[in-house]
Design a protein around this nucleic acid. Structure first.
Lengths: 208, 208
DNA sequence: TGAGAAGTGCACTGTTGGTACAGTACTTGT
DNA sequence: ACAAGTACTGTACCAACAGTGCACTTCTCA
């Protein structure tokens, strides 16, 4: 049993505001999301909102930070689960990808959308700080996946010449693209299937 | 020499408005793009704008329609080029992918962004008609790529069990994801490299 | 019970999308 | 050269909304 720190009333309200805002932003964009609708849905006044966030950009930043932290935790968790199930770097990575795909297919109405992708398509709306956070997010994922691929390549020489950075990026790309396709086609299964396609690629490149 | 129908003055203005609007939308989102800034940059008045478009949603629709038409033409062109260079379905598709990757790496400041992806992340802002257009766009691409893969699979049995719809979708996914990564990391080369990763996958699945 | 956390109330300003409509200059076919 | 569109301009207006600032109040919990 994991001991979760109880949230104070203020933190609860803040989380609720973030939940509502994220949902709205992923469907209407940041500029299209009005503070009025957020506070209305949260049952709070405008002044109450500004007690929690300096301004709208501060909300954007908090939203992204929370999203990145969550993603980090999820991947951390999946990686450690996968490592418990196999010592072999390739098998472990393949298990990780399967777990990832399963997790994505378990989301009730499909993945709600990647906040980072959404921000990338609205970069002029945000401060440099926030833009740097999206860049950093993608860079971190590249490094994390790359580490795994390096370990795999050390034991299983690739069957074809391949740049491991590109291959690491491909997982991010396939995930971002899969989310978009899944939303657009109203076929939530697309995302997990795309991850499995990536998995098949990894298998072919390193596997026998 | 292809005879291009000269644009009337009105059509020129309309195109200019669409150019300006598309650029803005890809950086600020649709709601974040004001009519005022569009007309200001176009050197036209508000009344002039409403001569060309009924309202803002009409602009959104025209923008998307033009984008889809352009994409269609580009792929049509690349496919026919590739088919001229080889009769073999696999080789032809691989050539197509290489041409596609090259085209994407030739864009001066990198791909400006996929309007369809941008719309998907702002779906609540648009009319049902526009939303259907994004869905239809993705569905068409799936079908077009799928046709090619079918022809390939008929001659070259896949080395692994693979769903050809998923494989067709993967090109869209990798392209959408590659655009996002390229923008986010400020590394325009990412997109064409991701397309080449997909090409490597196709080669491994069907190739010897 | 008292000090800070977590709000409320209200006033204000500029912007936005959108409407209405009369007038005008520029093109284009004939 | 002229009429008939085409492609706008100018002006005036509106309701809704984003975003802020600040004084004031209520709630919570150590």
């Amino acid at each position: 049993m994991v001991q979760v720190q109880a949230l104070s009333k203020g933190e609860q309200t803040r989380e609720r505001l973030l939940d509502i805002a994220q949902d709205a932003v992923l469907h209407k964009g940041f500029a299209g999301t009005s503070l009025d609708e957020i506070i209305c849905e949260a049952g709070i006044t405008k002044s109450g909102f500004f007690y929690h966030f300096r301004d709208k950009n501060d909300l954007a930043k908090a939203l992204l930070q929370r999203y990145l932290d969550n993603e980090w935790r999820v991947f951390e968790d999946l990686f450690s689960q996968a490592e418990e199930l196999s010592d072999d770097p390739l098998h472990s990575f393949l298990i990780f990808l399967k777990l990832f795909a399963d997790l994505m297919s378990d989301i009730p109405n499909g993945h709600p959308g990647c906040l980072v992708a959404s921000y990338v398509y609205q970069d002029y709306l945000f401060s440099q700080e926030v833009r740097r956070m999206t860049t950093e997010g993608h860079r971190i994922w590249r490094v994390r996946f790359r580490e795994r691929l390096d370990r795999i390549a050390a034991r299983y020489p690739p069957k074809i010449e391949v740049d491991l950075n590109d291959m690491a990026d491909m997982l991010s790309a396939v995930a971002d693209g899969g989310i978009i396709l899944g939303k657009s086609l109203a076929e939530p299964a697309v995302l997990s299937r795309q991850i499995m396609q990536y998995r098949a690629y990894v298998k072919l490149v390193f596997g026998g």
